[in-house]
Simulated assay, not measured.
Amino acid sequence: MTYVVTENCIRCKFMDCVEVCPVDCFYVGENMLVIHPDECIDCGVCEPECPAEAILPDSDDRVADWVEPNRKYATLWPNITRKGVAPDDADEWKDKPGKAELFSPEPGKA
Rank of each mutant, 00 (worst) to 15 (best):
M1F: 09
M1G: 11
Y3D: 00
V4W: 00
V4G: 01
V5R: 02
V5E: 01
T6C: 10
T6I: 07
E7N: 11
N8I: 02
N8G: 15
N8D: 12
C9E: 05
C9W: 04
I10C: 02
C12P: 05
C12V: 15
F14C: 15
M15D: 12
D16Q: 14
V18M: 08
V20A: 12
C21M: 02
P22F: 02
V23Q: 01
V23T: 12
D24M: 09
Y27G: 07
N31G: 02
N31R: 00
M32E: 08
L33F: 04
L33Y: 03
V34Y: 00
E39R: 14
I41W: 04
D42Y: 14
C43W: 03
C43Y: 07
C43N: 10
G44Y: 06
G44Q: 09
V45T: 12
V45F: 04
E47P: 01
P48F: 07
P48Q: 06
E49I: 04
E49M: 15
C50M: 08
P51E: 05
P51K: 08
P51S: 07
A52R: 04
E53S: 13
E53K: 14
A54E: 08
P57H: 02
D58F: 05
D60A: 13
D61R: 13
R62H: 08
V63Q: 10
V63Y: 07
E68M: 11
P69F: 13
N70I: 09
K72D: 04
Y73N: 10
Y73P: 00
L76H: 03
W77K: 01
I80N: 03
T81Q: 15
R82P: 00
K83Q: 15
K83S: 04
G84A: 02
V85T: 15
P87Q: 07
D91M: 09
E92S: 10
E92N: 03
D95S: 13
D95N: 15
K96D: 07
K96T: 11
P97T: 13
K99Q: 08
A100R: 09
L102F: 05
L102Q: 10
F103L: 15
F103Q: 10
P105R: 09
E106S: 13
E106A: 15
P107M: 11
G108M: 08
G108F: 04
K109A: 11
A110N: 12
